[in-house]
């Protein structure tokens, strides 16, 4: 999923300051899962903003709603007819959601309430870990299903570097060394031969490309 964290309340209050009528819109998909922008967080943020407005005698009218996804047109369309009644939208979506809504309604400011973080997994309640960089050239099967691009601080394909000690990364002793995990799991799987391979430089054009990437699938178009 795409993970995100809500911006500090002060920043959000400063952002909505010029607007009197604000539509607070959550996204129930990824950022809902990571408890940053789902229905519950939308409710909490809406209340906090109204409370602040009352305390500071600021005029503010809000309405809350949560879309299933803010990055897909058929869900964004639910805002049609409603959004025009507001001065701004405060979006609790990832950056992709904010931009998708703004593209459909280009004349209304869509304010980002979240800082988008990374592609990751829910490790346990309240703990999310980054484990994919979307490099466009997945080779996890060669590295015991542990991504060196994401999980090694130096994105080494032929690791580990000399800073791996007691299974920890020298950059952050709380972070397991990805290569330690790779070596250990390959050993467990009896696949140590994969370690002897010298892996060639990555093709970063699949990640960096020529600016933003796109996927075109004719079979999906009608």
């Amino acid at each position: 999923m795409i993970t995100a964290e809500r911006k500090p309340l002060d920043e959000i209050i400063a952002m909505i300051l010029p607007f009197k009528k604000v539509l607070v819109v959550g996204c129930a998909s990824c950022v809902g899962e990571c408890a940053a922008g789902g229905e519950k967080e939308v409710g909490l943020l809406g209340s906090a903003l109204r409370m602040d407005a009352r305390m500071t005698t600021k005029e503010l009218e809000t309405r809350e709603m949560t879309l299933e996804r803010q990055c897909v047109y058929e869900f964004i369309d639910r805002l049609t007819g409603l959004i025009d009644q507001y001065d701004a939208v405060l979006s609790l979506a990832c950056g992709a959601g904010v931009q998708a809504v703004a593209e459909v309604f280009p004349n209304i400011p869509i304010l980002p309430a979240l800082n988008t973080s990374f592609l990751g997994q829910t490790k346990e309640a309240g703990l999310w870990l980054e484990n994919c960089r979307g490099c466009g050239d997945c080779r996890l099967h060669l590295f015991a299903d542990i991504c060196p691009v994401t999980r090694c601080a130096k994105q080494i394909f032929n690791g580990p570097c000399g800073g791996s000690q007691d299974g920890k990364c020298e950059v952050n002793p709380e972070t397991p060394c990805a290569w330690h995990l790779i070596v250990t799991r390959l050993e467990d799987r009896n696949q140590l031969d994969l370690l002897e391979e010298v892996y060639a430089p990555a093709d970063w054009s699949k990640k960096e490309g020529a600016g933003p990437r796109k996927i075109v699938r004719e079979d999906q178009q009608n």
């Binding site: 130096k154 080494i156 394909f157 000399g162 010298v198 990555a202």
Partner: peptide
């Protein structure tokens, strides 16, 4: 490879790591 940028005096720098040290040898 080089010491990670987070240890130095430019901690906000991007780490390039386009190649790794073994790929540099090969190059």
């Amino acid at each position: 490879s080089g010491d990670h940028q987070s240890f130095g005096n430019q901690t906000q720098a991007i780490g390039v790591f386009d190649l790794d040290s073994i790929q540099l040898i090969q190059t």
